[in-house]
Every structure is written in C-alpha cells, then in structure tokens.
Design a protein around this nucleic acid. Structure first.
Lengths: 147, 147
DNA sequence: TGAACAAATCAGAATAATTCTTATATAATA
DNA sequence: TATTATATAAGAATTATTCTGATTTGTTCA
C-alpha cells in the first residue's frame, strides 16, 4: 500500500511545519530538504553526511546552510546534538527517550530502548545543584563491524 | 604536613612509571609533566587547557606533543576521552566507574558517583551484537553557573 | 495579488582544533 | 658511554565549523 508509505513522510513534515509556524521560523525548501533527510535516520549523521544527501536533490546548497539549519533545529527541539568524542558533531532526530551504544573505534552510535533505564533517579547532589532535563545510559565498546 | 601532600603526587606517578615500563613506553619529562597535570584534575580538561598548564613548567613544549601524549595515555588506559558534543576533546583521569552530568550550555562535565547506577544490565540485543566494555549514565541539563 | 522587509541563503574567507612531516634530540639498553 | 629506536619541536597541512557581505526569498499585509 502506497498510502501508508506516504503517510510516514507526510506526518513528521506536517509536525515540522507546525513547529516552524509556532516559532516564526520560515519554511524554506532547504529546511524541508534537510529535515526530510533527518526523518527516520538512525545513523546519527554528521553535517557532512547530511550535506551529501541533500546535495542530490539540492545541488547548490551551501554547507553553511546545513550547519545553520541544524543549529536552528536543535534550538527548536527538532533534533538533539549527541555525544561524540571530539570528532564531528552528530545529530539525532529521535525525540523519544532512548539510550546509546557507542563504538570506541568507528564512533558509530546505535540507539536502543530499555524501559528499566527510563526512570533512573538523579542523585540528590546533582539534582539540587543543577537542572537536569534528560538522563540517558551510554554503553561503550566495540561494534560488530569493528570486532 | 607536607609529607601527605607529596605522597598524593608520588603514588600515581609511580603507577604511571610502572605502566610505561610494562608497555615499553619511554618515560620522558614531557609525559611526566602532562600526567602530573592530569592527576586529580576533575575538570575534564581539553588539550589546550593542559597545554597552558604544562607550559608554565615546560615553556617549549609543543601542542602536538600534548595531543600525541594524550592519545598514548588513552591507548594505555591512563585516561579516557569523554563525551563532548562536537567541540573539543575532553580527557578524564578518573578510572573508577562513575557517571557524568553535562551542561548543555557551557559544556562543563561533572563526575558523580551513584552505586545504584554501577550495575545496570546491558540489554540482550546490545550485548549479543557488540562487545560492551563500559556503561555509564549521562545526565544533561544546565549547571549552576548557567542557570 | 504584489510590494516591503526581515530573515535566510550562498560563496568564499576566516578561524580553530587536530594531525602530519621532517629534522633533531633523547631515553633505554647493552 | 655508544647505539638505536622512540619522542620531540616547529611549523605546515588538514578538517570542521563559523563568519561576512552581497543577494535572494518567505511572509505579511495592504
């Protein structure tokens, strides 16, 4: 059924448009293209990766637009910047609570869900001093390909 | 008592020398100086920060030596590279299991200890596919200064 | 619908972090 | 103490990211 496949795309794009309107952010074709690349992307892409994908349909887009747009999306809460280790920035379009496995060799980040990790109690010492908006578990090691 | 203060320095340095000998890594004055700066440093310093500290006693040291040495230390398991968000690399000399709070604004990373987080069970799906060497909890939000 | 204006884009320069290259110096070892 | 492999300094090179300035484009509202 084609309808279902189409809906998968349509829904988040409509959400995107709404969020833009709410915040008075212009809906430009570039932003739509970048957001479309992000939707459902599980690979925590870098700006460079996104740039290469968007260029296919948007050959004249500038890398600066990618960076600025990702920064805008991050401020809007449409994507998260996720932990790397001093290499390049990585972006995650998954907004539901989840956790990360990270490969120490190739820096791949893999999402996983685990209910028992979703309600960890923040220690008093931290909670009293800082304002914690999110808590996640990060497992580190070697991925299947690097093993 | 001066003795106590001195011992604090002497012990980890001896450990450092041993690890170097084990691995056949030369013990150079530069490496000793860099390791000394790291010992007990809770601030997850960057290469730049370490460079500035080491330069006080070692004015001619090269930034490249700092980078190479930190990389060597990381391979030796003397320090960990810790999660940042695409800014600069950060290093952590704390080897005991611990967890991190990270400020989303100033990128400060604060260690904390919480026994109940030390034995989280890695989900089967992850464990079966990857080799996990360490698991930690990362809390994110705003620190006291940024609030 | 179509001007007007603020906001967004492109292109390329600038900056900052990190790594590489090469010649020299030094730690380890016999 | 001489030998040799390793480490270092200096500066060039590379890469990621941001900035600048001129141009274009969404959005708004008459």
């Amino acid at each position: 059924m084609q309808t279902k496949a189409l809906n998968k795309q349509k829904e988040p794009l409509e959400l995107f448009r709404e969020k833009c309107r709410e915040r008075g952010i212009s809906i430009t074709p570039q932003r739509v293209a970048i957001y479309s690349v992000l939707i459902g992307n599980q690979a925590h892409p870098s700006a460079e990766t996104i740039y290469n994908r968007v260029k296919i349909t948007f050959p004249d887009i500038s890398i600066d637009t990618i960076y600025r747009t990702l920064s805008t999306f991050s401020n809007m809460g449409l994507v998260d910047e996720v932990e790397g280790y001093g290499e390049v920035k990585r972006y995650d379009p998954e907004l539901k609570q989840h956790h990360h496995f990270r490969c120490k060799k190739c820096n791949k980040i893999v999402d996983f869900h685990e209910k028992s990790f979703d309600n960890l109690k923040i220690p008093k010492a931290i909670k009293e001093k800082f304002s914690v908006s999110n808590i996640k578990v990060v497992a580190e090691g070697l991925c299947d390909e690097c093993l």
